[in-house]
Design a binder for these strands. Sequence first.
DNA 1: GTTAGCAGTCAAATAAAAAGAGTGCTAAAA
DNA 2: TTTTAGCACTCTTTTTATTTGACTGCTAAC
Lengths: 335, 335
Amino acid sequence: MLDDRKKRVLQAIVEEYINTAEPVSSNALTKSNGLNYSSATIRNEMADLEKKGYLDKTHTSSGRIPSEKGYRYYVDELINDNDISVEEIKYISSKLETKVNEIEDLTKLTATTISEITHYTTLSIGPKNDEQLIEEIKFVQLGTRMIMAVILTDNGLVKETIIKFDEDITAKQVETVNYMFNQKLKGKPLETIKGPLEEYLFDEMQYSINVIKPIIEQIKKVLAEDEKIYLEGANKSFDLPEFNSLEVAKNFVNVLDTKELMEDMLNSGFAQDINVYIGQENEKDELKDFSIVTFKHKVGNKDLGTIGIIGPKRMDYSKVISVMKYISKKLNDNS
Amino acid sequence: MLDDRKKRVLQAIVEEYINTAEPVSSNALTKSNGLNYSSATIRNEMADLEKKGYLDKTHTSSGRIPSEKGYRYYVDELINDNDISVEEIKYISSKLETKVNEIEDLTKLTATTISEITHYTTLSIGPKNDEQLIEEIKFVQLGTRMIMAVILTDNGLVKETIIKFDEDITAKQVETVNYMFNQKLKGKPLETIKGPLEEYLFDEMQYSINVIKPIIEQIKKVLAEDEKIYLEGANKSFDLPEFNSLEVAKNFVNVLDTKELMEDMLNSGFAQDINVYIGQENEKDELKDFSIVTFKHKVGNKDLGTIGIIGPKRMDYSKVISVMKYISKKLNDNS
DNA sequence: GTTAGCAGTCAAATAAAAAGAGTGCTAAAA
DNA sequence: TTTTAGCACTCTTTTTATTTGACTGCTAAC
């Protein structure tokens, strides 16, 4: 579609703009990137690229900036997905050696690492747990009126919650509950608990409904609770020139303060493990000014959670994607 | 020190400025607050108050704004600490009826409520736990190579963590560990665990040092982990005119993104249960543009955590303090 | 196909002028 | 002695005009 020189011009403009945040002039390009043509020639190419929709102007006599279509073409066709230095590789390796006990901690650690290398704001969320299978539910008595429920899944997820009662609980009761829950739920997907659990548990346990009811309520509540989203490096974005616009800055804080938006970001359709959404490609209006790169974090087929990067459309896609790919490879090699 | 009319003028200026965010002119005051004097008279009073340091001007011919000394005087002497409407009382009551299972959840709930009523950004942190006494430590086997430790304190705090091993663990070992830890730690303050625990546990348990060592490490790690700080309503601040200055906005995001600053805010000396820090009164430079109100949240003598409000110096101190006092009273009455 | 060169465009920076909100002070009134 | 009317003066904000400079588009020559 685009001939070779046009591709080179487009790539040069995108990369220059990512670096400088200033509209790129024909003159600026003659010096760089092996584009040994006069500015007039470049100007002709630029005019063509603009006509085709890959470039925009901020005003009639300004330099060019990439359009969203331009960024998209760059991401799909021109990107260098190995844009990662030796130092960065070293840094990532050392970070990933940290020992963690819970899955979510690994995802958080990865998110932090990405944020540190790319200088963008990252979000992370633990694995979706609905499909995970219940391996065991343990009930531990913590006091005369307090027990703890611990749910283990085949994926290594551990979820625990405390349940308080208005009356004393006997060890026998805990034991019965323990037996009953495991009897009914072992091997079932975690989402079973979210369903009408009462029905088939109550029948058999009429005798201690006042014990079992608060348990079910609390467990449901904990599982229903929105997953925690971890935010890393919010202030980093504010050093970018885009955020000198109060409107953009406000919008950004608003996004980070609105859980639904963040969940939406992290859960948008996953054609690939790495997905890029540029400006208007985001469904939510609030995100139209930003680009988002999501990264489905997994080892083998085991889902570890999702990491999202949010930044300006003028994001360093090469760097971001390179880092994600490298981390993904590294994690899978290690295991 | 200040005669009655001066107090009334100062109070009117502070309140007017809190409402409008605009320098207050002598004219604006003649209409309000039962100050039935001509603007010239008010001007004379204002000039006096300025000479005494309670007011500032933004330029020679501008209206007046309160100085930090002015705000301080207002907070100490002129404030109405019952500035709370029937609707607000209803709202708070309904909120506080929500059943919560963990202390931190109550503190979080309270923080959310305060944020919703005052429209300021709030931070909250759970109770300091160092002085709490260990009531019991339970070890629960979750798998052949995984156990969970649950620490209960006299204050109702529950802290749990997972420990993974490189080799299989027997039920007998867990039992021994259980016995040993409780033997040594029951009734001791939680901070004991942070100390050189190994010394007197290792001696007696040489035989299973490879079991006990990872346990100690992990428990220490969990307790050492910085307390989680919950943030509520960050974007609310951005609607305030103060935050139209990019510098202020940036500073604010920076504060909220820097854990140490937030911890500092929440832990500054507690002469009273409610403390107000106005602008320069804050120790940290980064907070000099803001006012902070901290609220030591407790029932009886039981510490439940701390809540902090951060906003511009032009904060509605009356509202904030009234809400805090009301919640405090309410909680203590209920229990 | 490429390039030099020039006219034309627009944003950004600088300067000058006008409008408006308030104060401080003085002298008169209460 | 306290209060107030009124006016000159100050300083910000808004508006308008002017200049500068970075680019482009286009044409004609290479």
